[in-house]
Simulated assay, not measured.
Amino acid sequence: MSAVRRAAVLGSPIAHSLSPVLHRAAYEELGLSGWTYDRFDIDEAALPGFVAELGPDWAGLSLTMPLKRAVIPLLDEISDTAASVEAVNTVVFGDDGRVRGDNTDIPGMLAALHERGVEHVERASVLGAGATASSALAALARICTGEVTAYVRSAARAEEMRGWGERLGVTVRTASWEDAAEGLDAPLVIATTPAGSTDALAAAVPERPGTLFDVLYEPWPTTLATAWATHGGGVVGGLDLLVHQAVLQVEQMTGSAPAPLAAMRKAGEAALAAR
């Protein structure tokens, strides 16, 4: 298959993105010799003009911050999954001329957890309250049968997380970030905070921890993830999430399924090791 098709990841900043590595590895494994995947530093102001100038050779876009919400008005339709969190990370240009948006972060989270044997949990803790935290709640809506406790730094963030919980059908209790150590005894802990934010919690890892899903992939392993693994707990990392959401993007953009998960993960691991 050698038809020339283009795809790219957009965001700002974007130089750190591993998406080109993952998607190009998929194209090579699938024999899509005419496909290219690039990165463009695009902010919210530049996004409409960029999208308007794309030609018929474009198959799709991956979007990172700060574009996941800004792109929605530019689309013909979005999936229910994307609508549930008002965030699109995948744009596909259809043969019918329609531009469709989806969110592969949420099913990517679920796939990463399922891969490590986490199918259902009775309760969970979420560390942080940003955009990734809302995606975490959407994923938990499908696997958590009980309460989710969100540990946040402000009353405004607490209100926001409770609002997402109501919208997504999740019972969310909020607590102060200062009490986050108490949440580490949950069967599933999802850390959605920036690098270094959870380092101080490493000393509070319980003797028999459940599963930690730390969405960071660089630096890796995080201090918390290292302590978690030392105590025998299961650890799911940011590269797991990145690869699984990219698999779904490749399948949607190319129409080739299944995408080569193993080859994409191997390429991502090699790229991180080389940094």
Results as ranks from 00 to 15, higher is better:
G34V: 03
D80M: 03
G31Y: 06
A46V: 00
A87Q: 05
I78P: 11
K68M: 03
G31D: 00
T90R: 09
V85Q: 00
N89T: 02
I42Q: 04
A46Q: 15
A82I: 11
D41Y: 00
T81L: 07
L30I: 05
Y37G: 00
A70Q: 07
P48F: 11
G31V: 09
G31N: 09
V92L: 05
G55E: 10
G31M: 04
A83G: 15
L54R: 14
A52E: 12
D43K: 01
G34K: 06
P66Y: 00
S62G: 15
L47H: 07
R39D: 13
R39Y: 08
I72C: 09
G60K: 02
V71Q: 07
A45C: 02
L61D: 13
Y27Q: 09
I72V: 14
I78W: 06
A87M: 01
L32E: 01
A52W: 03
G94P: 01
A82Q: 04
S79D: 15
A59N: 12
S33C: 04
L74W: 08
A59Y: 03
L61A: 11
D43A: 04
A87W: 00
V85H: 07
L63G: 06
S79P: 08
P66Q: 08
S84L: 10
M65R: 08
M65D: 02
G49L: 07
T81C: 14
V85R: 10
T81M: 10
Y37F: 10
D76H: 13
Y37T: 00
P48S: 14
I78R: 12
N89S: 06
E44M: 06
I78V: 15
L67V: 04
D43C: 03
F40Q: 14
S62W: 01
E53M: 04
V88D: 06
D43N: 09
D76M: 01
P48Y: 13
G94R: 15
R98D: 02
L61G: 10
Y27L: 03
L47Y: 03
D80G: 15
G31Q: 05
P48V: 10
